[in-house]
Design a binder for these strands. Sequence first.
DNA 1: TTTTTATTGGGAGGGATTATTGTTAATGAC
DNA 2: GTCATTAACAATAATCCCTCCCAATAAAAA
Lengths: 134, 134
Amino acid sequence: MATVEKKSRNTRQQKLILQALRQTDRHPTAEELYEKVREAMPRISLATVYRNLMKLERLGQAQVFKAPGEKRRYDGNVRTHAHFRCRNCKRFFDFDGSNGVFGSLERELGQWSREDFEVEDYRLELIGLCGDCR
Amino acid sequence: MATVEKKSRNTRQQKLILQALRQTDRHPTAEELYEKVREAMPRISLATVYRNLMKLERLGQAQVFKAPGEKRRYDGNVRTHAHFRCRNCKRFFDFDGSNGVFGSLERELGQWSREDFEVEDYRLELIGLCGDCR
DNA sequence: TTTTTATTGGGAGGGATTATTGTTAATGAC
DNA sequence: GTCATTAACAATAATCCCTCCCAATAAAAA
């Protein structure tokens, strides 16, 4: 049975949350975004922040990262890029492909595509020890 | 005080709207007719489309169907016929009486007629799940 | 033609619908 | 147990359809 998609509303809260998310590359948690958005809208609820982050993910405007035992972290940068998570200090970095590491990965992905499916994008998260923790 | 019926003018807009309405059996919404008529008259206003649809109904040249929470749908076919509305996908079909269902309905209607009133016509709208949504 | 006035375009406004909110409580992972 | 996240629900507000407004236009009458 064809499901009727209900349509989304562009609320003030949603705009503020997306804006706060894009203003940083520090991959904030919901709690951190909550504190930030509260500066502009003191009465906003934490549940609203969570709900909007879910919605933004559904809309392709945000990415969510979850590691066992860690809080969820959010990213408003939807250009394809990789992340590095330090298993010691738990920091979560952007990791760009400027060193050419990803070129070969992407060639590989291209080869996986066949007539019945096509790899269009990827998500890559690297875990290890960061420079400070080594 | 007798209300003076003001006389109607046959405008270019009215002609185009009626023509567009008769060219389809898809029971368009005002918005859809607006888009269609705009091809021939780009500067026509949506309000004009609504106004003319009201007028055409008054003149007996169109029928209007309204279900709660749904947009109004218009039909340029003024011969008596039934409709089927799918509660899921919201499509709105013509429903002809070729299977004999309406024969008995009409006999029934005939019996309701008495000296003080007479059933001359009917409007029948069926709501359910269409084939695709079942 | 000129006059009369129904009708138009376009934006603003209103009522109805319903997605979203704030709150508190419940859940569930660890 | 603790703490991150979600559910429940009545109140709120975003949005959708449609209508109103009014100066400008154009159909029909004179």
